[in-house]
């Protein structure tokens, strides 16, 4: 059973945003979804999350129809737009997420401490989110997505707006986490330098899958995109 199976998905607002997108991801894979701004990555993530209704095609998450309770329970999401309550502390924000996923207080407390420790934020646990830097907020969001031990992690431009060292640290942390826990990850980005040799990379351009392979070299991607654009 695939962790994520997308078949012939098309979606349109006023103009088409996705056109016949199909791919699947096997359990344990770390897959990059690479595309320029406006390629349709966020639309695809919103469909996988069930935030948008499917217009055409099918999506199965962990063997379940998209939007179903079992599918959502197995997924962890990091959205492109920050989704933290600025007026709550880091611990309160994470506790809220844990409650939404039905974790008990004691489990939530343990996991919050564990995840914040892993992401180097244990000392900021009781600080208001609004006092954190952009990079720290993103790490809180990733820690939050991992809190309920999802089998499938979906990250939409999780490093957007961060400096290069912060981006690298976050990507490495997520890669390590997936390797340690055997989780599957779909990482959407427009930044070619987040691709490492051997990564499976799906290139999305103008709503269509243009490439899907493991041997895309990060260094050649700017030229690759220039070629697609022309």
């Amino acid at each position: 059973m695939s962790a994520l199976e997308i078949r012939d998905v098309s979606h349109a607002y006023r103009k088409p945003a996705l056109r016949g997108v199909s791919f699947s991801i096997e359990p344990g894979d770390f897959v990059l979804l690479l595309g320029l701004n406006g390629a349709g990555k966020t639309t695809l993530f919103s469909l996988i999350a069930g935030l948008l209704g499917l217009q055409q095609g099918s999506i199965r998450v962990l063997g379940h129809e998209v939007g179903r309770s079992a599918a959502l329970a197995g997924c962890g999401f990091v959205f492109q737009q920050s989704a933290l309550d600025l007026d709550l502390t880091v611990a309160q924000s994470l506790r809220y997420h844990a409650a939404l996923h039905g974790l008990s207080r004691s489990d939530a407390r343990k996991r919050i401490e564990q995840e914040l420790e892993r992401f180097g934020l244990a000392a900021r646990m009781h600080d208001l989110v609004r006092t954190l830097s952009g990079g720290q907020r993103r790490r809180v969001e990733i820690a939050r997505a991992l809190l309920h031990r999802p089998c499938l992690l979906l990250l939409d431009e999780a490093t957007v707006g961060l400096d290069v060292p912060s981006r690298r640290a976050i990507v490495q942390r997520v890669r390590a986490q997936c390797a340690e826990e055997g989780a599957t990850a779909l990482w959407a980005t427009h930044l070619p330098d987040e691709v490492e040799p051997g990564d499976r990379t799906i290139v999305l351009h103008e709503g269509q899958v243009r490439d899907d392979r493991r041997d895309i070299a990060a260094a050649s991607l700017p030229d690759y995109f220039a070629g697609l654009a022309s």
Partner: peptide
Amino acid sequence: EMGSMKVLLVSPQP
């Protein structure tokens, strides 16, 4: 507008 509603909407509850 701030995006935090998505956190609520991707909860496994109906």
